[in-house]
């Protein structure tokens, strides 16, 4: 099979799966179920495409689908502020950074052939699947989920509640400050690491072969 056919089969299968899970979700839990199915598909499908694709740019855009799906899941979990933050930070920030990374590094076409990694992937996947099934079968969650629609919207998940939680002295102000410090330090460190050194701009002092 050549690359083209594989792509077609893959994306075709993906479409079929979308239809199946949408249908399944609708049938199992009505529209909320369908929404969950859609968002879960966006999440996992994005991840799958990300792994599947040989091009970094495509993978990055596939990842955007993952992030959007997770944001959707957050909405379903009544965490609208988080969902917004997810879209803002991941899609707007991190993904943009990744794309910058893609642009600043040369394209590398020497990815492994799928056939070479597939056995390993299969083993790892089966193992994870097995562990997951076992966990799902034996785990007793301390919290048992209430139905999605059976709970009233409270201030608990609103941006206001989170803001108050962050700033109230008796709640998460330490975590807030910590986060602020971590961000500052990390950004300064990033700037420091990535800054161009004098030797980079003076050709005479760069390594041989780069001057040309």
């Amino acid at each position: 099979m050549d690359q083209q056919t594989l792509q077609r089969i893959f994306y075709g299968a993906l479409g079929l799966i979308l239809l199946v899970v949408l249908g399944g979700g609708l049938a199992a839990a009505g529209w909320p179920g369908a929404a969950f199915a859609l968002f879960a598909f966006m999440t996992l499908g994005g991840g799958l495409v990300c792994i599947w694709e040989r091009s970094v740019v495509r993978s990055a855009f596939a990842l955007m689908s993952t992030f959007m799906g997770i944001a959707g899941l957050f909405i379903l979990l009544e965490s609208d502020f988080l969902a917004m933050a997810q879209i803002l930070i991941y899609v707007g920030g991190i993904l943009a950074l990744l794309l910058f990374g893609v642009m600043l590094t040369p394209p590398d076409m020497s990815e492994r052939k799928l056939g070479r990694v597939l056995p390993g992937l299969g083993i790892v996947g089966l193992a994870i699947l097995w562990v997951g099934l076992k966990v799902a079968a034996t785990a007793k969650w301390a919290v048992q989920g209430a139905p999605l629609d059976g709970r009233a919207d409270g201030p608990i998940s609103s941006a206001e509640a989170i803001g108050v939680g962050f700033l109230a002295v008796d709640q998460y102000v330490v975590a807030f400050e910590l986060a602020a410090i971590v961000l500052t330090v990390a950004l300064v460190a990033a700037v420091y690491i990535a800054r161009r050194r004098l030797s980079d701009v003076q050709p005479s002092r760069t390594r041989a072969g780069e001057v040309g």
Binding site: V124, A127, I128, W130, V131, K134, V135, T138
Partner: peptide, 13 residues
């Protein structure tokens, strides 16, 4: 690391 984690999980299970 992943293999180790999996093996540990398997052992625990």
């Amino acid at each position: 690391a992943v293999g180790g984690g999996l093996l540990t999980a398997a052992w625990l299970i």
